Simulated scan of single mutants.
Amino acid sequence: MEFEEKNIAYPPVHPGTDRTFIRFYSGKPDLNQIFYSQEQEDQPQRIFVTDTNVASLKEMQPFVNFFRGEDYSKPEIKPGFKGKRGNDVLLILGSGEPFKTIQSVLAICSAAIDSNARRSAVFVGIGGGVITDMTAFAASIFKRGALCELVPTTLLSMVDAAVGGKTGCDFDSYKNMIGSFFPAQKIHIIPSFIQSLPESEYRSGMAEVVKTALLYSKDLFEKLAAKPEILQNRNDPLVEQMIKTCVNAKATVVEQDLTEKNIRMQLNLGHTFGHALETRAGLGTVSHGDAVAWGMSRAAVLSEKMGLCTQKYRTTIQNVLASFGWETTPLHSALKGKYSSEEEAANSLFEAMKKDKKNASGKVRFVLQKDIEETVITEADEKDVLCVLQN
């Protein structure tokens, strides 16, 4: 059979913005000052998105109450609440990983459509990684691309989730299976938000801090290793220092590799194991940070098994993770009782890893380390992976 071929050349698809402005704020959160202190006639419409936990924070009340109208006196705001403030809209979703669904993303788009939003509208996600991921994803698909700003309110979203343009939602029990690369044009980081976090959420974010330190800052890792009590002291000057260190490190990586073709893959240290754990335990059962911390411990053991790192390095990593209260055993406690044996659990985790979106071939890709700031991206034999999940 003969054929003729015609090629069409395209410019790269624009990711919504060509730069992100990251602003660090001191003092208590004041979203009215950030978004309404200098209102202008040509101000684009904003679609604000948050969840019930964030909306109920004391610091958020002056902002939220402007959208409540006649509901101002009601003490509780339920998922699905929509309010208006001029042309702007506030949508409040349910809180947590179980709500990180395509239905929630579509609810954000519906709120924009119901308010006759134009393509020039700005979608503003106010919350943790679940909200920032979904809001940015909704912005990326609304009328083929609106604009996006983010206000991360958890430690995890400040140091990782909100920075770098990864968007998306979970699907069919697998983490972040649907999404896009769509950076926010502005990120507003207010470190004092972390004072309101429950201990579990703060610890979850700390796992991403430790991960970033292992990848890019030996100095920060040594400071964290010497001060695990920082989990009980959020006023320590090291807290704001570590947030800025992590943001700067991730910004440097993302500038070089937005769409994760090479060095950005390093940021997945601990995530191949961690995402599999989240999937098999049931999304939301184990926090993302706790899963990643356990994943880093397994990655360290795998690194040693493959001859990449020394026993001393592996022991150092596991001891530091354990000092922060994270699990480092082969079988995570969230999986105990779900399987008849460790072997069955290990096989189930490995099957979940095969579906990880980071894999480029039929094999499973891992981010491993020789030492702090010495990172290797490689594939591992199934028998070695199964071994570190059982011994």
Rank of each mutant, 00 (worst) to 15 (best):
T328I: 08
L258P: 04
A360Y: 13
D172W: 11
C246F: 02
E344Y: 09
E379F: 04
S73I: 12
T315H: 04
S180P: 04
C309R: 09
A162C: 02
L302F: 00
E70D: 15
K218F: 06
V49Y: 10
Y10V: 14
S204Q: 07
Q185H: 11
D160S: 06
Y10M: 14
T285N: 00
Q311R: 14
G125M: 04
G16K: 03
S361T: 14
G270D: 01
R85S: 13
A249S: 14
V151P: 05
P79D: 00
K383W: 15
C387Q: 12
S196C: 06
A345M: 01
A107N: 13
A112C: 14
F3C: 13
L283C: 01
Y174D: 06
R118I: 07
Q369R: 00
L331P: 03
G284E: 04
K227Y: 10
G325W: 00
E278M: 08
L220R: 03
L220T: 02
L231W: 01
T154K: 01
A352W: 02
E374T: 09
P237C: 09
Q195L: 10
G16E: 07
I77G: 10
T310G: 03
N248P: 02
L389K: 06
P330C: 07
K223V: 02
N7D: 14
A161S: 10
I102Q: 14
L57P: 13
K338N: 13
N268L: 09
I189C: 05
C169Y: 11
S110M: 14
N65I: 01
Q61V: 12
K250G: 09
Y313F: 15
A225K: 04
M206T: 02
H271Q: 15
T50E: 12
V254N: 09
S110C: 14
L258D: 06
N319F: 05
C387S: 13
V163M: 00
Q241W: 07
T50K: 13
A345S: 12
F67D: 13
A226P: 04
I141P: 10
T52M: 12
A161L: 08
